[in-house]
């Protein structure tokens, strides 16, 4: 399934497939933003020149097979345990660059303890935290970030906050820890926001490379399949409904992180 293009010698390369990605088809549903986010991370790894010393920690969820798509070393964590596993890797290999890719259930439900403590210890790790307000792989159940009133397969009448509590503001929580140096929430729902998200991911990796502390980039995303919407409608819906609950912006950026020259 690989594609080979022969470039004539007299032509300049202005675009190429990221070296840190494998040329394979992903298993994601049509319209799913995971592929976009994988690509942004791969471009950042390429641009920072860290492909040969980068180790990714795969989550449980739709992106459980992420290691098939990246041309970097990967380990597969249990659901929610990626920050602990990444801690074990980074502490024993401080010269490597370690990142976790986690969903909302992983980060804000089953793995809340591991996430907060990794951040609080200031582990030199980078997390890309994909928030689509639903459990995708298990078939559309309520996530910790499901919006009040939102219908899922485990909240058939809509999320009743008296029964199921409120959406967990994970980035706001992580920003309270002293060990976190860069905590931001972005969205990947249109071209400008995708460009901004890439810059945030790059800053988060650079914070780790500069040995500053823990960084996390939350990305508001969609699940058109389990939201029962077209890809386009899901992007519009996320902007209209998720952003008011999960405001975008930097919740923590230390002066050292701010001073990083992110191009």
């Amino acid at each position: 399934m690989s594609v080979t293009v022969n470039i004539p010698a007299d032509m300049e390369v202005v675009y190429e497939y990221p070296r840190s990605m494998n040329k394979v088809y992903t298993h994601y549903c049509p319209g799913c933003p995971h592929g976009i986010l994988h690509r942004l991370i791969a471009e950042v790894i390429d641009e920072l020149g860290i492909q040969d010393r980068c180790i990714g920690v795969a989550p449980v969820g739709c992106s459980v097979l992420i290691y098939k798509y990246f041309n970097v070393d990967f380990v597969e964590a249990a659901h929610g345990r990626a920050p602990a596993m990444a801690t074990g890797i980074k502490r024993t290999n401080p010269d490597k660059i370690v990142f976790t890719y986690q969903g909302d259930g992983d980060m804000a439900a089953i793995g809340t303890a591991e996430a907060i403590h990794a951040a609080n210890r200031g582990e030199r790790l980078t997390t890309v935290f994909v928030n689509n307000a639903i459990y995708g792989m298990t078939g559309g159940q309520m996530a910790p970030t499901t919006l009040p009133g939102m219908v899922t397969t485990s909240t058939p009448m809509g999320r009743d906050v008296r029964l199921a509590g409120y959406p967990v503001p994970m980035s706001e929580i992580l920003a309270q820890t002293k060990g976190a140096v860069y905590i931001t929430r972005q969205m990947a729902l249109d071209l400008p926001s995708i460009v901004k998200t890439k810059k945030a991911i790059k800053r988060a990796f650079m914070a780790q490379m500069a040995d500053l502390g823990y960084s996390s980039v939350e990305v508001l995303s969609t699940c058109n399949t389990n939201w029962n919407m077209s890809p386009w409608d899901s992007m519009v819906w996320a902007k209209e409904h998720m952003v008011p609950t999960f405001p975008l912006g930097d919740f923590k950026m230390t002066d050292e992180v701010r001073a990083l020259k992110v191009r």
Binding site: V57, V75, A77, A84, M85, T87, G88, R91, A113
Partner: peptide
């Protein structure tokens, strides 16, 4: 829970 997963990562 975290300890054994740190062990797993290091291993």
């Amino acid at each position: 829970v975290a300890a054994i997963n740190m062990v797993y990562g290091a291993a």
